[in-house]
Write a protein that binds this DNA or RNA. Structure first.
Lengths: 178, 178
DNA sequence: CGTTAATTTCTGTTTTTACTGAAATAACTG
DNA sequence: CAGTTATTTCAGTAAAAACAGAAATTAACG
């Protein structure tokens, strides 16, 4: 597979984006490529198109699979794995968020939880410090609770909420300006 | 300033968190320290407490100032700068999000915008590719629009929305289950 | 069951990013 | 304005992450 000028620019930019948001450049590039591709690609094709080492492609694909951003599809009469990216943008975003939640957010939540205990039970720690650590935990928990609730809503409702934006606030009693 | 065991653990963990979310470790550590501190600290004190080079502290503080996560306070009879972190968690979160938006998100938005133009006007690029790049842009724009609307709401309303979570969906006509 | 193709693991290299410490500059003080 | 003290810049070093290529493993096929 050969990329046109703009396609190439997109892939490169996506890779750059990745690095700034804590995603490996190769991983992001491969994801972008599969997102644009009009047919399932083999690891070999990816290697050639992006000029990155075969081993690197292999590992990056595994990573993308674990994020559930790509899937393998079998092609009849070909024993090699073929890869496709999920194409629904909303779903993509959801899975990225969910991935980061599992890998970074939840572990931090539990670390902070024990840390709050430690701080409260340690007389060398000021009440203020303990409280601030606790507040951090609370805020993150609140955000997580909110996320978990939103996740239960059907996608249609999610996009409605997104589209309506701040107008929603007007529906809630007691939050008006007056 | 000396840190208790749990305080130290918090600072270290916060630094680790930072690296995973694209924030420099020293920057995050210093932020955590100032967040816990019960009084404004000088650069010198930070250097001693965290054992990181003076120059590093200086640059990190400048970084934190540019994110508006810390402020300088003058102490009478002392010509050195003293630093304090903002303590309201919600406000902290807001400023971090706003910072990343300005630095990463908006630039990407404009890059993608020109990229969509390029792709549409380039006959070597398939319609599908161009559409997918465009969809990516649209989704990111939608998210940004939503964010901008939310930002206009008074903090009280913001937390209400956060607390009510999915219950909000029930208020919106046409998004019910049936 | 041996051969070939495909994939993965592993070790060493390269690249990038973070950090230090010295030197330069700037800001204040008597 | 000479002497200090505080801050910043900068060049070099160290640490971390990403990556390549060879070697090893696994899976398919006749």
């Amino acid at each position: 597979m050969t990329l046109s000028e703009p396609e190439q620019a997109f892939v490169l930019h996506w890779g750059e984006m990745g690095t700034r948001w804590g995603v490996n450049r190769s991983v992001a590039q491969i994801h972008a490529l599969l997102y644009l591709a009009d047919k399932p690609l083999t690891a070999e094709e990816i290697t050639e198109t992006l000029s990155i080492a075969r081993s690197n492609v292999s590992n990056s694909l595994k990573e993308l699979l674990s994020w559930r951003l790509i899937e393998t599809t079998s092609v009849l009469g070909d024993r090699r794995d073929h890869f496709t990216a999920i194409t629904d943008g909303m779903e993509m975003a959801t899975r990225i968020v969910e991935g980061r939640r599992q890998r970074e957010f939840l572990p931090t939540l539990s670390t902070l939880a024990t840390l709050v205990e430690d701080a409260r039970g340690d007389e060398a720690t000021s009440k203020q410090s303990a409280d601030r650590i606790a507040e951090t935990l609370n805020l993150m928990r609140q955000a997580d609770d909110w996320y978990r609730e939103m996740r239960t809503l059907p996608p249609r409702v999610q996009s409605t909420l997104l589209m309506m934006g701040a107008k929603i606030a007007k529906l809630i009693p007691g939050t008006g300006k007056s």
